[in-house]
Design a protein around this nucleic acid. Sequence first.
DNA 1: CAGTGAGCGAGCTTCCGCTTGACTT
Length: 775
Amino acid sequence: MAKNLVIVESPAKAKTIEGFLGKDYTVKSSLGHVMDLDSKKLSVDVENDFEPQYEISPDKKKLVSELKKMAKAAETVWLASDEDREGEAISWHLYNALKLNEEKSKRIVFHEITKNAILHAIENPRSIDKNLVSAQQARRVLDRLVGYELSPLLWRKVKPSLSAGRVQSVAVRLIVEREEEIKNFKTTSAFRTLAEFRLSEGKNTTRFTAEYAERFKTFEEAKSFVENQAGAAFEIASVEKKPGKKSPAPPFTTSTLQQEASRKLGFSVANTMRVAQRLYESGRITYMRTDSVNLSGQAIGAAKAEIESLYGNEYVKIRKFTTKSKGAQEAHEAIRPTYLNQSSISGSREEERLYQLIWKRTIASQMSDAVLEKTNVKIKSSEAAKMFVANGEIIKFDGFLKVYRESLEDTNEEKQETSLLPPLAKGNPLTLMEMKSVETFTKHLPRYTEASLVRKMEELGIGRPSTYAPTISTIQRREYVVKESRPGEKREIRNIILKDGQVKEKITHENTGNEKAKLFPTDIGTLVNRFLLQHFDDIIDFNFTSSVEKEFDEIAEGKKEWNNIIKEFYGPFHEKVQDTLKNSGKFSGEKLLGKDPKSGKNIYVKIGRYGAIAQIGDTDSEEKPRFAGLQKGQSLETITLEEALKLFEFPRSLGAYEGEEVTVAIGRFGPYVKHNKLFFSIKKEYNPASLSLEEAIQIIEAKRKAEREKLIRSYEADPDVQVLNGRWGPYLVIKKQNYKIPKDRDAASLTLEDCYAIAKDPKNMPKKRYVKKKK
DNA sequence: CAGTGAGCGAGCTTCCGCTTGACTT
């Protein structure tokens, strides 16, 4: 057994470090936290100074006992978890879980995974920083108290299984409020007038575009302006040249990597992290969960050498970037290639593309500025009060743009038009080729994508690199928000065109409101947000996290006691929870839509136990109300009385088939046809509202046919065994238990013995995915 | 997810932040 045991957080890191240290060192990883609060209980003693009740995490029991054994045999245990709040707590928990003591254990930290940095760290050990551990404890306890008191309140007042928390509830709030802004946005239009010119004299026939400095509010104004330009004379009034420059973006952090991979490669946030993880594990890139833009000295040196050899010395510019995002803890480097001399790697297509993006961004960050020349030209018309303006931009030196250009963020701002300008001088007469006044509409703020939501959260200091992707998944899994693409609508655009001395009007079309993979709030998300805003606006305040972070910092500095901070928060918070529990009724978002014209009963929509429902009749009337679930795509916000009434037309009888009644209805899994106690789901091609008996029979017969073809083999000797054809190909059933059939076996020729053998092999057991919700 | 879908109603659900797992049916 080695004399020294070093414990880091990640296995990939452990492997690298073991290579640096001699045979006297064994390097192991803790795989993150090893202790946590029991998830089944509150596990915080609110009566007793908020003492947290930690336990060894169930999935870490084996690992901890293994580490304990190794620690016992070792002379010294080096606790080398990351140098931040969470890392310090991990070391402290290891210290306790492994039953270490002061003499036997040492705390070390390093910022670079190089031999020198590790050796230096080992020469300069320290002890565990208890204040930093207390700060982590405060963070942990606060999140538990908020999450585990608010969530059950939601179960009681809104709907079971919901959740709320310091981070996720703010993420949902951002999406809900953006949607409200969009709903309240009033589109207006104005007429932009663009003119295409060329020089009247000389050989250069390059055309260029200029925009008139005023926008017209009405079609009439625009039209009379354009008409007046028909006989006008144009000349260059001024030419102004200004130098400009562009600088490269800093190297990637988790958040910026997620944004760029989304914009440039179309990756979801979760996918980016999955691919980056693989690159990290295969030693291609540095750690992918980081908020640091810092590059190690070694990396900068390698980047410099690479740029020099690829593009030349004039393209090198060494830069030190500093992190400006709130609450950054900087335990790691920026995300960069491990070996900068590899501009590409071989792997899966996704790995190759993501790697290349990281390589380019890192290299570009150490390259020269791009040098630009911006030209602003003003053009005078003899018949107009204001000027036409043209903007040009030429790149005099490309610098970092040779390698990488950051994608533009999706905003509602119009991009300024620039065009390539011919050489122009003051006084040059111009010939008007064409003039167009085009109706343009104002745009609402864009909806969030996964990646732009992460950007916003980082800006607000909410969440951490390790939680961005999981948080985005959580709010979708809870059905607070949905990621969707929606087609836009066609919109008419009025154009006024002046060409060859004639003014014409023309209608063109544009597609507007088209959304791709954007986040939309659901009814539940909107309702929960409204509830939290009404009762706990302080918790979902955008500044809540940053203000508690300040307090955590003071705990870390030893200026405050962690349990006092929690006490100050918990008192009023808990009281509000109790008060809401007692004095506030069900929060269902109930809305009266109108009256049923037939019965005169009220029609409501609201959120029920399983989601959005419509209700006909009043709860307190003698006759019980009837309920019907809303269809996919319908929402409390937008459903009309007519649509709600239609929901009550189910179940509907279509007539008889084979002497049995055929009905159509809508269930938990969508519309279905019922016949002779059997269910047949209705595919999207059919409309359940207008389904005819003929169509229903088609559906029934199609399913029967599939059923008939389902049986591949059965065996007389054992009727419990069947080989069936399912949605994913052939499978085996023995006594209602399903088994996979290995790919190299021919399903149709399996003997009964083969079937038993297949069933015995545990590899063929169906995977029980973590199906938490059974029903 | 290898068949589901309605009435009863007990028991369950939940946070954030560290890390990878064992697979893709």
